[in-house]
Design a binder for these strands. Structure first.
Lengths: 194, 194
DNA sequence: GACTAAAACAAACACTTGTTTTGTACTGGC
DNA sequence: GCCAGTACAAAACAAGTGTTTGTTTTAGTC
């Protein structure tokens, strides 16, 4: 980490570059997006990217890290003013899904890109995602549950269902908050009618 | 579709080719797998693949279709001898997850590859997946549920959670059947303790 | 206003990609 | 034994890939 000797220039296109990388990595995946795809809309040449990043993987790592930062902040803010454990979990799910489906391209990258697909930075990505999911570990821990309930299974089911919605969600027709609330409701209320 | 004028030869390596394609498409994705990756382990040259398929996308389509065929058959067989609607759904989930996580590379392709990522055959893949998921539409329709319960949400939650397990499942340490049963159980029993 | 570092350009590099073309063993069926 | 047809091999193709290198422009600092 060699600090810059001087303040960055105001006309530098790094932010635009990251935005476009997030957009494309999120919608086409890592392997499905080329360096030239990314720099095209930023009016940059392929080689210029390597002033900012040593490799394509490092660009992904930067986007991924920013994605975790944004969605973590978003969820933390949503949970903050809620008291009841179930309300807190529901608020977190709503914020998670809104960020994922309706707000941030960066969040999409975090959910879409599989760390195992990018060996060079795989463990780093896993660590970032684990750090984020720890929020949900805490939220489920605080839940008043029947004895014997497997909290890990509960968390994996909820997050899995939320994340998978990325594959079928239709903007405009579906509503992220409604989906999230629907999932939580299915867990709270009994479905069995015997 | 020009049918062969003669029976295929017994020494042809098309089955091996499909197996290897399923293995790689399932573990590395479509864009992350090259033609040369696939033919290498079958001891074939890249160009030879084009005797069997007109394009890389068509190879994927063949694998995808076989994947749908296999997992459909597997789930249908598991449901067959069950009577109670919840038991039928649970059996389907167990079979779905066992096929996905512990048996078939072909099934992995169906769940992993996003149709939108392969525009040339996207609509065809969607149609195939929809046909498979219709099994779960029927299974949830038969469920005795409290009035007002959104069956679509229920199905999307269950299938989403199951499919997402592909990202965190660890062979040997986790158990597919147990995971599936755990998810179904969370839906049937009430978690709220008020 | 001169100096310097930031941020990019310009042009290539070596390699990989999906695909085409041409030729040719081998084989199942008569 | 013939032979049409299957199932490849062999070799190349053009386009695209991530990346490097040398140079140029521009903005921040004094």
């Amino acid at each position: 980490m060699n600090r810059p000797l001087r303040a960055p220039r105001v006309d530098n296109r790094l932010p635009l570059l990251l935005d476009e990388a997030a957009r494309l990595f999120g919608s086409q995946g890592f392997a499905g997006t080329s360096i030239r795809d990314i720099v095209r809309k930023v009016d940059m040449l392929p080689g210029s990217l390597y002033y900012h990043f040593a490799a394509k993987e490092d660009l992904l790592a930067a986007v991924y890290e920013e994605g975790v930062r944004r969605i973590s902040e978003r969820v933390a803010a949503a949970v903050e003013d809620k008291i009841h454990p179930w309300q807190r979990l529901e608020a977190a799910c709503v914020a998670h899904l809104e960020a994922l489906l309706e707000e941030s391209d960066y969040a999409q990258v975090v959910i879409r890109v599989r760390p195992a697909d990018v060996p060079a930075i795989g463990t780093r990505l896993v660590a970032l995602r684990d750090r984020y999911e720890r929020i949900f570990v805490d939220l489920t821990r605080a839940l008043p549950l029947p004895t014997g309930t497997n909290r890990r299974t509960l968390r994996l089911m909820l997050l899995g269902a939320l994340n998978w919605s990325q594959t079928w969600y239709r903007p405009g027709r579906d509503d992220a908050a409604a989906i999230a609330r629907g999932f939580v409701a299915l867990l709270r209320r009994p479905l069995d009618q015997e």
